[in-house]
């Protein structure tokens, strides 16, 4: 597994090869069957989150514990960071204490790029600004692959606030590499046409986008987008872009619904669609732990075998 991986860090999926992504998905699937207890015994995983998170963080904590690693909790508030210490200084200090993995969430795009090469420990991106959220995309892919086997010839719609979504970007980069087609859908303010230059199809008409698709990944619409003038009101957005069961039925009969959560029921997705038979939302959450176990283990091997 390390041959195909060979990386200390996971900062994003854009720069990974198809083989590296497949290796991660294979590792995650293997951990789902049986996880070797104590694979990361003696390792310590620290969480550096400058933004709030419940599901990503708890998923990573569970992943680390299942592999036998110790977990150091940490939040920006009340830490040395709040006292003006730089994130890099904090990381160097924690590394000196014995931390082997940093799981970092940062509100700024690209904030990890300069940090990762400056520390010996593995740095795993748990979301940086609007840029990438690689483990979320990996768990999305893992969930789809369980149903599909392969991504070749599949078409996935990502619906909602693409402009501000690190989940959409990581999914696009990875799905393209694995042979799937990606359609971004939403109003132009949230889905600029320039995304075409990154390899996505852009469609502002939801019905057209969904027709004959294999799956739709629905993104949360953050309430602040209304104040910022990207949408005029939540109800107006919902009228044009909410995923309802009727709209979902425009997809292929066996088509699937994903949502990275947390769900705004009645805004970007109706409750019926979120809870219906197509929905894989809870499968995603369950798979998240295995995808993150795979990333922790692969980065560990990538670091120690370099």
């Amino acid at each position: 597994m390390t041959k195909k991986w060979g990386l200390k860090d996971l900062l994003g999926l854009e720069r990974l090869s198809p083989a590296q992504i497949e290796a991660t998905l294979d590792q995650a699937a293997s951990f789902k069957k049986s996880a070797p207890k104590g694979l990361l015994a003696g390792r310590a995983v620290a969480f550096l989150f400058t933004e709030a998170s419940t599901r990503t963080r708890s998923s990573f904590e569970m992943a680390a514990k299942r592999l036998g690693a110790e977990v150091l909790s940490f939040s920006a508030a009340g830490s040395s960071l709040a006292k003006g210490e730089t994130l890099l200084d904090t990381m160097l200090n924690l590394q000196a204490v014995g931390v082997t993995h940093f799981v970092v969430r940062h509100e700024r795009s690209g904030a990890l790029e300069a940090l990762a090469p400056a520390v010996k420990a593995s740095v795993i991106n748990a979301g940086d600004g609007w840029h990438e959220h690689p483990t979320q995309a990996l768990l999305d892919l893992m969930t789809l692959r369980e149903r599909w086997g392969s991504f070749k010839g599949r078409r996935l719609v990502i619906l909602g606030d693409i402009r501000h979504s690190r989940v959409a970007r990581s999914n696009l980069f990875a799905l393209k590499k694995l042979g799937a087609k990606v359609t971004f859908c939403g109003p132009t303010a949230l889905v600029p046409d320039a995304f075409k230059e990154l390899g996505a199809t852009v469609e502002h008409d939801l019905e057209k986008a969904l027709k004959d698709a294999d799956a739709v990944n629905v993104l949360r619409l953050q309430l602040e987008r209304m104040e910022q003038g990207f949408v005029s009101s939540l109800s107006d957005y919902a009228l044009a872009y909410q995923l309802t069961t009727e709209r979902a039925d425009l997809m292929k009969p066996e088509a699937l619904i994903l949502h990275p959560g947390p769900v705004n029921r009645g805004v970007e997705i109706s409750s019926e669609a979120a809870d219906g038979p197509r929905s894989l939302i809870l499968d995603q959450v369950a798979n998240g732990v295995f995808a993150r176990m795979a990333v922790l283990a692969l980065c560990d091997a990538g670091r120690t075998h370099v």
Binding site: S109, G129, W130, H131, R166, R169, P192, A194, K196
Partner: peptide, 11 residues
């Protein structure tokens, strides 16, 4: 610049 490169970087 507001173009695909800004979208790629999330800026």
């Amino acid at each position: 610049h507001d173009g695909s490169e800004a979208l790629r970087k999330g800026l």
